[in-house]
Amino acid sequence: MSALSFAELCERVHARWPAVEAKRSDNGQPFLLVPATELVALVQWLRSDRELRFDALSDLTGYDLMKYPATPPSDAIAVVYVLFSYVQKHKLMLRVLAPRAACVVPSVSFLWPAALYFEREVWDLLGVHFDGHPTLLRIMTPQDWVGHPLRKDYIYPSEYHGVPHLREGQHFEHVPQREGDAVKAAPTAPAAPAKGAPPA
């Protein structure tokens, strides 16, 4: 049994899951776009099928599609799964789109325990709620942090626990904002705004 190419993997996946689309990223990397509702059944089959045998989750990450140049405008958050098979030596990338407002994706931590930490990180930084994760806590930022920093519309904090974020005379550069919108400079905590808050 040798490693399967992406086209061969696609063929087998399509035979059972016609809703899964094969796509290429901007730099030519092929991936499968999976509907969130079919993710769990698909990865269970990918892991258990004798010819595929994806026994390792190499990476689980995510990104914000907002303002992503070569993608049609979308308000979704993407979650990326990189699977690898130590038995068959082939790999596969899956992507799941989750709408920004109700950002819920089923957890795969029951299949690959490595996903426990990955999913906590994606939850912390992008705000994707992984349904079924046993302890979905923040992993990088403090537990009482407000917002998810890697979202493109994240508003920078002006203070944390009463300590102002910026020094006198400092201001944020490239404050995240939507295209066409005015700069959102509203401080998250009105009690003690930083002295050098960005101009409104």
Binding site: T141, P149, Y156, P157, V163, H165, L166, R167, Q170
Partner: peptide
């Protein structure tokens, strides 16, 4: 001292330990 290279672009770095 002051946050250094992170002072203008980072959401998480404290700009100077003398605040604490």
């Amino acid at each position: 001292n002051s946050g250094g290279p992170f002072s203008k672009w980072s959401y998480s770095v404290l700009n100077g330990i003398d605040k604490y």
